[in-house]
């Protein structure tokens, strides 16, 4: 596969490490009322869609950036590649 890195252009997927569902960005707050339940869901429950999926890839043999890749798990078509840091900010992880 080829991942079109937002800063570096198309790169072989072999340069990347796959982590999984991009929901891993949404780490719960430890002081929440139901923190244990939320961390359980965060840690153990994942969607596994046959189709479009947002997932985390790490450019280990590259610029060490974490990316959020929107990929169709049936066709491997990649429709969007974003810097995970921007996605994290957009999801409200700023201080």
């Amino acid at each position: 596969m080829i991942i079109n890195h937002p800063h570096l252009g198309p790169r072989d997927a072999a340069e990347f490490i796959y982590l999984g569902d991009a929901s891993l960005i949404d780490r719960p707050d430890w002081q929440d009322e139901n923190a244990t339940e939320k961390f359980y869901e965060y840690g153990y429950l994942r969607n596994n869609p046959a189709g479009e999926h947002q997932e985390l890839w790490y450019h280990e043999q590259g610029d060490r950036s974490w990316l959020v890749v929107t990929r169709n798990t049936l066709t491997h078509e990649i429709t969007k590649v974003e810097m995970a840091r921007d996605v994290a900010r957009a999801r409200g992880r700023s201080k």
């Binding site: 985390l56 280990e60 201080k95």
Partner: peptide, 23 residues
């Protein structure tokens, strides 16, 4: 060594995107 570095970059970029920290 490699795995810890990878995880620390994950924390830096995905969990704490507005911390000024560099690895």
């Amino acid at each position: 060594a490699v795995l810890v570095f990878r995880r620390m970059e994950f924390v830096r970029q995905c969990l704490c995107p507005d911390m000024d920290v560099h690895l």
